[in-house]
Amino acid sequence: MTTPSETARMSSTGFDLTPPPPDVRERLESALTAEERDVLLRHGTEAPFCGGLLNNKEPGVYCCKMCDLPLFKAEEKFESGTGWPSFTAPFDKEHVRLVKDTSYGMVRVEILCARCGSHQGHVFPDGPPPTGMRFCINSISLRFVPEGEEPTRSLDGAADAAF
């Protein structure tokens, strides 16, 4: 039998990227509301201009709502006018997975949490300098961690904090 440290995959910023085992995933999914499940697990989208984090301007970190992995820094957030929180770059490029999305007759790039695989939003090449990218994210996919509070570094910690 392997120990968690033997199978853990760590990001360059020190966060555990190991996917949740089935029992932990089940607990994380069961903690989501119906609307959160629709977006995070079924690749849905919340209506524009209604998300609770759209107008948040506080310093901190935006983490995956399901597994708590940090995905975006507040300093990368900008007002895109699209109705969803938008960021110029991820917290750590290893924390997001980009996947070609051909749903709805369009070709887009979907953003998934690299640890739990939950749907976050889409990325577009029409953002401001210096990256020129717009990571367009559903508020409901995120949990905001204010500056001064430490994001959870491992999935075990995220699961323990949630239950």
Score class of each variant (00 low, 15 high):
Thr7Arg: 14
Ser12Gly: 14
Gly14Gln: 08
Phe15Gly: 04
Thr18Arg: 09
Val24Pro: 10
Glu26Asn: 11
Glu29Gly: 06
Ser30Pro: 04
Ala31Cys: 11
Ala31Met: 12
Ala31Gln: 12
Thr33Tyr: 02
Glu36Gln: 15
Asp38Tyr: 13
Val39Trp: 01
Arg42Asp: 12
Gly44Ala: 13
Gly44His: 11
Thr45Lys: 10
Phe49Leu: 07
Leu53Gly: 11
Glu58Trp: 08
Cys64Ala: 07
Met66Ser: 13
Asp68Asn: 14
Asp68Leu: 12
Leu69Gly: 02
Pro70Ala: 03
Leu71Trp: 01
Phe72Val: 05
Lys73Asn: 15
Glu76Asn: 15
Glu76His: 15
Lys77Val: 11
Ser80Leu: 04
Trp84Arg: 04
Pro85Ser: 06
Phe87Met: 00
Phe91Glu: 07
Phe91Ser: 02
Asp92Thr: 02
Lys93Asp: 15
Arg97Leu: 06
Arg97Gly: 10
Leu98Met: 07
Val99Ala: 09
Asp101Pro: 01
Thr102Cys: 10
Ser103Gly: 12
Ile111Gly: 01
Leu112Met: 06
Ala114Val: 01
Arg115Cys: 05
Arg115Ile: 01
Cys116Lys: 04
Ser118Cys: 12
Gln120Val: 11
His122Glu: 03
His122Lys: 03
Gly127Asn: 07
Phe135Met: 04
Phe135Glu: 03
Ile137Cys: 06
Ile140Trp: 00
Ser141Val: 00
Leu142Asp: 04
Arg143His: 13
Glu150Asn: 12
Pro151Asp: 09
Pro151Glu: 06
Arg153Thr: 13
Ser154Ala: 06
Ser154Phe: 03
Gly157Thr: 05
Asp160Cys: 09
Phe163Glu: 14
Phe163Thr: 13
